[in-house]
Computed example of a mutant assay.
Amino acid sequence: MAFESDHPDVFAQMALFQPSAIQPVMEIVDFTDRRHHAILRYLSSCQSVTSRKLVGRRMGLLLWDAGQTGHTPLIGAAILASPRFSQRLRDGSFGWEPDYPRTSRNFDEAARAVRLAGLARMMQLAVACALPPYNLLSGAWLAALAPFTAVGQEAFRRAVRNEPDPDLAAVVTTTGKGVSGAPFRGHRLVQLSNRSIEAAPGSEGDVYARVKPGEGSATLRAYFDGLASTTTKRLACDLLGIEEGSISETDPDRAMAFALKKLGIDRSVFAGNEMGIHVGMLGRETRQHLSAGTPRPTNKRPRLSWETVVAVWTKKFLPVSTGAPETATQASLAEHNRARRKKHDDACAYPQSKVKLSHLLAEHSSRTADESATASGRSELTSGP
């Protein structure tokens, strides 16, 4: 990849890497900077589930490791954009009424105003990921907390330049491979705030809480209709007698929709795994204000201390520091220490050849060549004299 050769300083040098030396520092993304733009594109490719195109407001936080000898590699990043205007499970969790067009008789001006006020204080976390070897040290878990810090608030202020009272009160994210994801679990506010910040109701003491479908409510699922091949869509056009080329390339699924309807097949045939929606908030009263569309009082806008967050994070792979006292019980302490040691050792042993994403392309090419050779060998055996 061109990015990897153009920006080698982004990647960890494993011969010099020391987990005990890690010092995460944040940098606010400048979306007009070509280097930052290239980094964000690369990180988006690193996610196993790609994110949608960023729309509306945008903010990003790059996490750099300033503690390594001779270089400052990138740990990872949190990239956020405007939240979706409507999202059934999220909206229901805040008690927002369904939204209707102004031309509808069901349109409610007051309900629309509440929604707009809440969305103005909310962002959608599109990317929270970490590069090797920091991914082995729960680097994405750290990135998911970055928006809740003072630097995160400053990034939000820059993203909403015309907002007279910017306040990032909530972060929403969707997990595409299941109902939950490791970056959004186990952010215990008791530890992260030294008991100075209360958790939102229903979060069970965590920063992020999964929004669960109500009784009788449909679950949110991933859909794979977008993976239908061009050939399949062309056949769908033929099936319906649609002249090829009459369907706009900007709406490639239209032909499939027609074909499925003609055949009496429901779109659920493309339904995949259940997905999860998670909402991150700080403070007991935050949900109440978002539900009502009212601003939080200036003295009720808690932020996490980055130093404390880092101290809690490093407990996952280093001995306990003074900044984050031990929380494991005596009975589980030995198990916790073994888990820390394993993460530490796995990160240190990570091969330099696999730090960059391009190694996956090389492995894929190698597997393809091996499979071709095997197939050729079988063909020779079955077509012998």
Rank of each mutant, 00 (worst) to 15 (best):
T72C: 07
T32W: 05
I265M: 08
D30F: 01
S93D: 15
S353M: 10
V179M: 10
K356Y: 02
A311V: 13
D30I: 07
G70I: 04
A362R: 14
E371T: 12
R188I: 02
R287I: 01
E326V: 01
L63W: 01
A339Q: 14
S358Q: 08
V151P: 01
E154P: 00
T286C: 10
G95A: 05
L239V: 00
T329C: 06
V312Y: 04
T322G: 11
H71Y: 02
L16F: 11
D99Q: 13
T103M: 09
G176V: 10
R161K: 14
T231F: 12
L282A: 04
T173C: 15
Y42Q: 06
G70R: 03
A200R: 10
E97Q: 14
H278N: 11
A218N: 13
R84L: 15
P8R: 07
A15F: 05
K342L: 09
P8H: 11
L227E: 15
G60N: 07
T286Y: 04
A15C: 02
R41E: 12
F31N: 06
S44T: 08
N273V: 13
T149L: 06
R195P: 00
T219Q: 13
A271H: 03
S193A: 05
A347S: 08
G276H: 11
A375R: 15
V172M: 08
S321Y: 05
L43G: 01
G56E: 03
H187V: 03
R161P: 00
T72R: 14
E249G: 12
P252K: 10
Y42N: 02
S291H: 00
D251Y: 10
S5K: 15
D165I: 04
L89I: 01
S321W: 08
L361W: 09
A259V: 06
L62Q: 03
Y42M: 05
Q23V: 14
L333P: 01
F184V: 02
S379H: 09
Q13W: 04
E109C: 03
A169V: 05
L145I: 12
A334I: 06
G280M: 11
P325C: 04
L136Q: 15
T374L: 14
A311Y: 11
F107A: 12
